[in-house]
Design a protein around this nucleic acid. Structure first.
Lengths: 109, 109
DNA sequence: TTTATATATTGCAATATTACGATATATTAT
DNA sequence: ATAATATATCGTAATATTGCAATATATAAA
């Protein structure tokens, strides 16, 4: 993605961006929404649900995991992924703090 | 970003992903946070605030604008950017709906 | 032990992103 | 008209992302 200057951003800015970036792809949004509806959440099920090959799904799951959006446990030959509520709560807080810092009377456009 | 299969995602998934992607970069998070503290929000001010050249800031602003995160009006030789509250509210709803669809008792990890 | 099943990793091609210098455009000031 | 200021656009190099076939790994079944 070109030369990224991460040096002068805060840890929180970098972490938030990384989480939002992880969710910034339709396939990964779809994966998260699919996981919401599953008790048993196994990669192979997702492969049947999305128009993507198994390695691609696996890669997307890895990115969601690296960003902390999902967690996974090994269950025999299967994996069980689920959503990490804390990260989602953090993101709600992030956007709510944007909303509460908006001053409509100051808006110039 | 390689061959992206957008065909079989819903409009909402695509739109949400596009907005989150726009916010998925520390510079753009920083820009949004900077705009929150400004009445007069002019690109040149941001250039002095961030470690990025003017064309790069301009490009990031364009991406935020394309994703609907910010709006801009022309004020003489300056631009006035501000945040679009509706999009932020939509994102809060998106994450809240994830939270409300999480069933802790079903979590397998 | 062989086979089937589920997922991960590797390698690679196509494409997107990031950043910036140079330059264009457009407004304001002189 | 000319110069100064503010922002946008173009072109391009460096790097990241996306997707998949091929293959590896690891568990379970026969």
């Amino acid at each position: 993605m070109g030369v990224s200057k991460t040096s002068s951003y805060t840890e929180i800015q970098i972490e938030t961006a990384s989480r939002l970036k992880a969710l910034g792809h339709p396939a990964r949004i779809a994966i998260v929404q699919f996981l919401l509806n599953q008790k048993e959440c196994i990669c192979n099920d997702i492969v049947n649900e999305l128009p993507l090959a198994q390695p691609t799904i696996s890669q997307h799951l890895k990115e969601l995991k690296n960003a902390g959006i999902i967690q996974g446990t090994i269950e025999g030959k299967a994996r069980c992924y689920c959503i990490n509520p804390k990260v989602i709560k953090d993101l709600v807080s992030f956007f709510n703090s944007i909303l509460s810092n908006l001053h409509p009377e100051d808006q110039c456009c």
